[in-house]
């Protein structure tokens, strides 16, 4: 398992390649990538992501550990960026490896649902004439109840 919390961009291809290779017992690798989406009207100039150093890494590791107890997983990778990002930049990625695809897909969804509302990150949208914190959505909290 690897958890990386960083401001620097990451190489999606290289990360996926390195994660997927070398384990002949894993028949399935799922990757998910989160990208900074422009706002309605298309005038987002940047998104600033704040986090809680120390707690962030612990919270993500706890979520990944829990995923590993629920599904048969060979490996988990979580990379999450913080700082100033522009539209189109990759914010984060999750990868799961499992003997079979169902475990890999479900574990990746579980990780995403929990990272949304249990990992201490806060997003701020900056447009030409407005700056504001992104509010948490009820549906993101509700998504946790299905697990």
């Amino acid at each position: 398992m690897r958890v990386a919390v960083q401001s620097a961009p990451f190489d999606l291809g290289a990360e996926a390649e390195s994660f997927a290779k070398g384990n002949t017992r894993m028949g399935a690798v799922v990757t998910f990538t989160g990208v900074v989406r422009d706002v309605e009207g298309g005038d987002l100039s940047a998104m600033e992501i704040e986090h809680y150093p120390g707690m962030t890494e612990k919270a993500i590791a706890k979520i990944a550990d829990e995923a590993a107890t629920r599904w048969s997983l060979g490996d988990v990778l979580v990379i999450h960026r913080h700082g100033r990002l522009e539209p189109g930049e990759r914010i984060m990625m999750v990868a799961t490896a499992a003997p079979h695809r169902k475990d890999a897909f479900e574990a990746a969804e579980y990780l995403m649902d929990y990272l949304k509302s249990r990992a201490p990150f806060w997003k701020k949208e900056i447009t030409a004439d407005h700056t504001g914190w992104v509010a948490a959505k009820d549906e993101d909290e509700d998504a946790l109840t299905r697990w």
Binding site: A59, M112, L115, K116, W122
Partner: peptide, 24 residues
């Protein structure tokens, strides 16, 4: 570690307050 408002503070060294998280 996430906690509650009625949790005791005995032995606690670090308390953090923040809005609901928006990761991912």
């Amino acid at each position: 570690d996430l906690s509650d408002f009625d949790a005791p503070l005995k032995g606690v060294r670090e308390v953090a307050f923040f809005p609901p998280m928006t990761g991912g």
